[in-house]
Amino acid sequence: MTVQLTRMTKSVDDFSLGPVDLTLEPGTVTVLAGSNSSGKSLLLKTILNLVKKDDGEVKIFGEHVPGNTEQWIGRVGYMPQALIGCETFTGEELKSLVSRWYPNWDDCFFNTIAERLNIPLKKKYGKMSKGAQQKLSFALTIPRNPELLLLDEPTSHMDIPAKQIWLDILVEWMEAEERTILMATHNVDEIRKIADYISVMRNGKIIGTFEKEAFTRSYKRYWLHKLPVHPVPGEAAREEGVIISRLPFETEQYFRVQNIEYTDVRPLDLEEIITMMLKG
């Protein structure tokens, strides 16, 4: 396994993260979905030991983190929400600084990304728009060719075309070799197009990790002529003439036994499912 977290915990002031159990399979993309301040960023930082965990176990490529060996560091890329202390450097200057630290740096790839995303490399980082800052930060991260990539809301400020190009670059990059991604995002389109697994976070805990297709089929909306008086098995919510179920199989079985006919049934979309889960 690329990453394995076992009962990992971390408390900061009155916020407590975990205990978190999470496994990342090689070659897969896992998305962390959750409301603001649910602990997504803290989780990413704690995995990488940028913030020291309180308890539990973290393993990256089989190595304990922190541990006696630190081979994993060279195989991991991390893109935080913002780069700190870079305001006075231009994009070009940051590139020559960063590229020196990484033996696998692919300069050609950096140029391709800069061109495709139209990054103003001659501008100082502090003078760039937030979207351009994100593009630069991304361009400084993936040419290191890490096997594991952790991204913290990587496209939250990018415009629509940039998001599409960003996604294309990421998909092409993933095709070449077995790469693993863990990404915190609020962007539903990204979840739809690139996630294999979705981990839903609420108040510092992962309330579930789901394979995407299982996730998108987990909730269904039933249209009925007449709503039953009592709640049905799996019922998650009621609307006018509609029952939403979180256990479609059980609900349908109940309908059959009770001879309740529904006129239509549709799966909920991703946004609705995430919202339902976060409401609890």
């Binding site: 070659g27 897969t28 993309v29 996604l167 998909v171 993933m174 095709e175 739809r192 197009k193 690139i194 996630a195 294999d196 697994y197 394979e211 995407k212 297709e213």
Partner: peptide, 16 residues
């Protein structure tokens, strides 16, 4: 298309 590219186009996971 590669497994990853097809997954993106069809909006499903690479597992599928």
């Amino acid at each position: 298309p590669s497994i990853r590219a097809l997954a993106k186009d069809l909006e499903i996971s690479v597992i599928t």
